[in-house]
Design a protein around this nucleic acid. Structure first.
Length: 1119
RNA sequence: GCUCAAGUGGCGGAAUUGGUAGACGCGCUGGAUUCAAAAUCCAGUUCUUUCGAGAGUGUGGGUUCGAUUCCCACCUUGAGUACCA
């Protein structure tokens, strides 16, 4: 019987659908295994053969795990909100829901044809209200949470409110907006409701903020960076401006460190982890304050300790008394502005604890020089509180409360001498900088501010005003893109102002320059030209001094950026130290003297969560007195309203501004018509929608219980399925989806909603499938200029007679040869009159040909080409052939419609079958690698399936024998079991396809049709080629699906050999082989080999220096 | 620039606790079958060669009895990322 893929595949796809073969149960005795593909967006273009690659791999793994006795969850769904559907809606007026639905239908049909073992009963779509109800719900949870740095997790906002009520915000250690005002509990209570909400919004994990966006007035939308080309919109070429817009943001920065740490616990590809690490961008350094020179004399503080004294201090810090320890345990967790340090020197005094930011010293009483201490500390503007040992031991909490109080309500210090700080007047400005190299602080010779820095206008001297202003205007004109792209041009302006070097007290120039970015760090840098190339270039350009602070390093040509192995010089107390020690000591000194502190900075910025689009999740938010209010979760989902047009409104509001039914009735608890907005209890709803990543940041959890109406998923299901065991998808999601999803997972974990804080244990990036484009070479004829011909018309005639000509690829190696070939052809065929031959010039134009017109030998189907819809112009073209055929050129490019190298899986499935497609996609090469597609290669796997089929048949009759298998047959089988199992575990699917081919070739040669061999073989093949396996399985007499039959068990005894075909090498080069029994000793082997005539011939009389015998492996004769 | 990955026949690729380089497939060559073609089957297919053999895994070194595999330097390609202080 012939193997008929069409009938077989249809039959089993229907069988699986009817029997719900792959429906996963939430309860099972079996261990669980969760395999997931990254959420597909159902685009209108449908699938090309590159798309299913990852799905096939994950499907093989899922099917394998079922054979291995796991309860497998392998769902699929659609990330169905998105821009393309909205774009299409704007162009055609069709509702995006409709086109999305149609796209999904096509998509599903295509997927079904490939025979995936998806549990479709769990399908989710992000654009379904039943689904986005939970997206909205998570948003509300984020709104109702803040990040407590002390407990290092998200907590409910009510906890924060309680703290505010009790003690104000001074002691709160939270991730929040910059520059939060301090308030006491009384002040909090005195705030109006709106004021309180404003404050809380600064702490919430999702919050409103003014964000700079690329606004395109003509399109009425915000554009992503890559939608802008040369300062204008990619579509339409309209101007784009930077504009501040109030938008929802997510405080992902709160999770920066945990997102970084979590990477160590998951098995993801290193490049992906690297790019996340890079994106989070942790840098360790110091915040340093530079005072701007205001003319008053100021001497640098000269109190410092030697390195030796510091080491001694370190020792002291480790040996605390019991009371000291008790109090330290309470104080050490305070971070940020209320961070305490223990055993610290202030002047020449050693204090027990100090909070530098709040100028508070905490000491144990009973020190001999208490009066002198107090006086000195007060002079240095420190408050001092003292406690007795017993107080701490008896009730440490009471002591801590007193300390908190002292922080919040500092006593006014009555100084006994002139307070240095008193000279501070309103002209005293400070410039804060973040640096990763505090060790190089003595190399600072100038400072650079971003042109947008707020201090620029305040400190610029009158003399420099004009220049600075001109520079700022010039930079403002340059787009951020321009500024980033142009690295070569060095530009800047001197402000005329000077800063005071905090250590040396020297005056240093303050410049502005657009190489400093306003929105990174503090928008200012301390420039160390000898240690940073950009600072170096800047200093060279503007002739600013470049002090060298590196021992024995030449910096005349370029900056010295290495840190390891270099000693610091010319740096006062840092001189002679290496990077690490200098860094620590510099930070230590800064903290002691109070103008700097060690800090960890992250590049990761909070994520903007608003989109001015229609086709996205609406926010469950309305506005009362301008403040956002969450709609109670029990009224969700808030369903996307209908609109007439999908464009922004005329006054620039997002598309939802077009909705007429888009107001919240706070009494009726429902969405009502905008007409009712006059009513006191009806409020406007949010007009923005959520971004694409909202719905895809938790869908993997929803699959665990997709139809639950009361919870995101039940606790039981979440605990049973836990997280994804294997996640497969493209590397383009490295920093978008995969970072945001990890953030949400950690948040949901903090809130106790999900049981684990990483959502995917193992992740694999499948490589792209590239297209193998086919090129035909068109000849274009034209008349040479300046030929001196009088009659132009006759020249036109000459050209008109010449048809379009295509030249086969191997007929030319150069453009000159090409021209010659074409001319000769035209002369031979009389298309060209020899008299005009010299007038005509020929040029070559390579054109993409549809790859479906080319066969495996690169030969073009000429008739097919002429009649192809795209080639109407070439109906009468001539083809210059080589050996009777037209050969095309080949090149590997990205697969796309525009290059005519895209291949639709539907055609492959129709011609060769889904099993062939699956095998071939795996056979192409390693899963993770990019590889070109060439349809011709599929005949190899296709004939493999035919050969496999034939093993079970004798002519037209299905015939399987029950006789005992031979040794060789068992050896083939078990070799195959071993290799296939190893390959699947290692995700090396390409090699197992080869293994199957070898097995079938061997069994065919052995004429094996034994049930004992073929049955296990069927199971082995089943994950890869499930349709043919099911068919053969049923022919073997089984009624149940093959999908949960146990995987064959490997037995090593069938692979034991008694002899080995030894390779005999001379100086490492294999010259011949020799079959020898495996039970020989080294000496016996050596003897036999040395006596062999081939060995003697090889040696040609030489005496070997050494003979290496590795039994069972190799023999190497040296000499 | 930086980070990462990868360089093996005409092509996709295989082989690494260091032990026969080129498995398997495509393509190609020859043969069988056929009126012919498709399909199928058989044999061959890294290069050079004086047919003895020799060379060979991006290039140049090194370690080793032995290197595609380990180390160093360089070249090329691809991916990501960037005035990140």
């Amino acid at each position: 019987m012939q193997y008929n893929h069409l009938d077989i595949e249809k039959k089993w796809q229907e069988f699986w659908a009817e029997n719900q073969t792959f429906k996963a149960s939430n309860e099972s005795e079996k261990p669980k295994y969760y395999v997931l593909d990254m959420f597909p967006y159902p685009s209108g273009a449908g699938l090309h053969v590159g798309h299913p690659l990852g799905y096939i791999a994950s499907d093989i793994y899922a099917r394998y795990k079922r054979h291995k006795g796991f309860n497998v969850l392998h769902p699929q769904g659609y990330d169905s909100f998105g821009l393309p559907a909205e774009q299409y809606a704007i162009q055609t007026g069709q509702h995006p829901a409709k086109t999305t639905e149609a796209n999904i239908t096509t998509y599903r049909k295509q997927l079904d044809k490939i025979g995936f073992s998806f549990d479709w009963s769990r399908e989710v779509r992000t654009s379904n209200p039943e689904y986005y109800k939970w997206t909205q719900w998570i948003f509300i949870q984020l709104f109702n949470s803040w990040y407590n740095k002390d407990s290092d997790k998200a907590e409910d906002i009510s906890v924060l409110e309680k703290i505010f009520k009790k003690e104000g915000n001074a002691t709160v250690n939270a991730v929040c907006d910059d520059e939060i005002k301090l308030f006491s509990s009384d002040e909090w209570k005195a705030f109006t409701k709106v004021e309180q909400e404003e404050v809380l919004l600064q702490y919430r994990l999702t919050f409103l903020s003014d964000t700079e966006v690329n606004w395109c007035p003509a399109l009425g939308t915000v554009l992503a960076n890559d939608e802008i080309v040369n300062g204008v919109s990619e579509r339409g070429g309209h101007p784009v401006v930077r504009k501040k817009m109030t938008q929802w943001s997510m405080r992902i920065s709160a999770y920066a460190q945990r997102l970084l740490d979590g990477l160590n616990t998951i098995d993801w590809p290193q490049p992906l982890k690297d790019s996340q690490t890079n994106w989070i961008g942790r840098s360790q350094g110091a915040m340093v304050s530079f005072n701007v020179d205001n003319g008053s004399e100021k001497t640098p503080s000269d109190v410092k300790l030697t390195f030796k004294e510091l080491e001694a201090l370190k020792e002291l810090r480790l040996n605390l008394s019991k009371a000291e320890m008790t109090l330290w345990n309470e104080l050490k967790n305070k971070k940020g502005a209320v961070k305490f340090r223990k055993k610290y020197t202030i002047g020449t005094f050693l204090v027990d604890y100090v909070c530098l930011a709040k100028n508070l010293i905490v000491e144990f009483s009973g020190k001999e020089d208490e009066v002198a201490r107090t006086e000195f500390f007060n002079n240095e503007s420190f408050n001092v509180v003292r406690f007795k040992n017993e107080e701490v031991i008896e009730n440490v909490l009471k002591v801590v409360a007193a300390i908190n109080n002292a922080i919040q309500f500092p006593k006014k210090i009555e100084s006994t001498s002139v307070n240095k700080e008193a000279v501070k007047d309103e002209n005293q400005y400070k410039i804060d900088v973040f640096t990763t190299r505090p060790d190089t602080i003595y190399g600072v010779s100038f400072m650079t501010l971003a042109p947008e820095h707020e201090l620029v206008s305040k400190i610029t001297t009158d003399a420099q005003k004009a220049e600075v202003k001109a520079y700022i205007t010039a930079t403002a004109k340059r787009s951020e893109r321009d500024r980033m792209a142009d690295v070569k041009t060095i530009s800047g302006a001197f402000t005329g102002a000077y800063a005071i070097h905090p250590f040396s007290g020297e005056k240093i120039q303050i410049w502005i320059g657009d190489y400093v970015l306003a929105n990174y760090g503090t928008g200012a840098v301390m420039a160390v030209p000898c240690g940073d190339q950009r600072d170096f270039d800047f200093a060279k350009h503007f002739e600013i001094p470049i002090p060298n602070i590196f021992e024995g390093v030449d910096i005349s040509e370029e900056a010295h950026t290495d840190k390891d192995g270099t000693k610091i010089a010319n740096s006062d107390f840092l001189s002679g130290l290496k990077y690490k020690k200098a860094l620590k000591l510099a930070i230590f000194e800064m903290e002691k003297r109070g103008f700097g502190y060690g800090k960890i900075n992250y590049r990761l910025r909070d994520a903007v969560f608003s989109r001015q689009r229609y086709w996205g999740e609406p926010f469950p938010v309305y506005y009362k007195d301008g403040m956002p209010q969450m709609i109670d979760a029990k009224h969700l989902p808030i369903v996307l309203p209908e609109v007439e047009k999908y464009l922004p409104t005329e006054d620039g509001k997002p598309p939802l501004g077009n909705a007429t039914e888009w107001a919240w009735d706070s009494r009726g608890k429902k969405v009502v018509s905008n007409d009712k907005l006059k009513n006191k209890t009806v409020y406007p709803l949010e007009l923005n929608t959520m971004p694409g990543w909202a719905g895809s940041s938790y869908y993997f959890n929803r699959y665990m219980d997709p139809n639950n109406e009361n919870e995101i998923a039940s606790k039981d299901n979440l605990e049973y399925w836990e997280n994804i065991d294997l996640y497969i998808g493209g590397s383009e999601h490295a920093t978008g989806h995969l970072l945001y999803a990890r953030f949400w997972q950690k948040f949901l974990f903090d809130k106790g909603i999900v049981p684990v804080d990483e959502f995917a244990k193992k992740l694999i990036n499948q490589g792209m499938i590239l297209g193998t484009s086919a090129f035909v070479y068109k000849a274009t004829a034209f008349i040479q200029n300046g030929c001196g011909c009088s009659d132009e018309k006759s020249n036109d005639d000459v050209i008109d007679k010449i048809p379009t000509v295509f030249v086969s690829k191997n007929l030319f190696n150069s453009d000159d040869e090409f021209e010659k070939v074409v001319k000769n052809y035209l002369l031979d065929t009389k298309f060209l009159n020899p008299n005009f031959a010299d007038l005509v010039m020929i040029t070559k134009t390579p054109l993409h040909s549809d790859v479906s017109l080319v066969n495996a030998s690169d030969e073009l189907d000429i008739d097919g080409f002429k009649n192809h819809v795209l080639n109407a112009d070439y109906k009468n073209a001539e083809f210059i052939l080589e050996e009777g055929v037209y050969k095309v050129g080949r090149e590997v490019e990205k697969m796309s419609k525009s290059k005519y190298n895209d291949v639709n899986p539907d055609n492959i499935v129709a011609d060769y079958g889904a099993d062939s497609l699956r095998l071939f996609e795996m056979f192409l090469g390693p899963l993770e690698q990019a590889k070109p597609w060439k349809t011709s290669g599929i005949s190899g796997v296709s004939s493999f399936l035919k050969k496999l089929w034939k093993l079970y048949f004798n002519g037209e009759i299905f015939e399987v024998s029950d006789t005992e298998p031979t040794k060789d047959e068992l050896k083939t089988l078990h070799k195959t079991i071993k290799k296939v199992e190893e390959d699947i575990e290692n995700f090396s699917f390409n090699t197992s396809v080869s293994t199957f081919m070898i097995a079938v070739n061997e069994l065919t040669a052995l004429k094996c049709n034994k049930r004992a061999i073929l049955e296990p073989l069927t199971v082995l093949v089943s994950p890869y080629a499930p349709h043919i396996a099911e068919e053969l399985w049923s022919l073997l007499g089984y009624k149940e699906s093959i999908s949960i039959v146990n995987f064959p068990i490997f037995d090593a005894k069938h692979l034991v050999e008694s002899a080995k075909n030894y390779p005999i090498s001379f100086n490492g080069k294999m010259r011949f082989t020799l079959e020898l029994p495996l039970d020989l000793s080294k000496e016996e082997i050596e003897k036999i080999v040395m006596e062999n005539e081939k060995t003697i011939a090889q040696l040609d009389g030489r005496i070997p220096k050494k003979v290496i015998v590795v039994p069972g492996k190799i023999i190497n004769i040296v000499g």
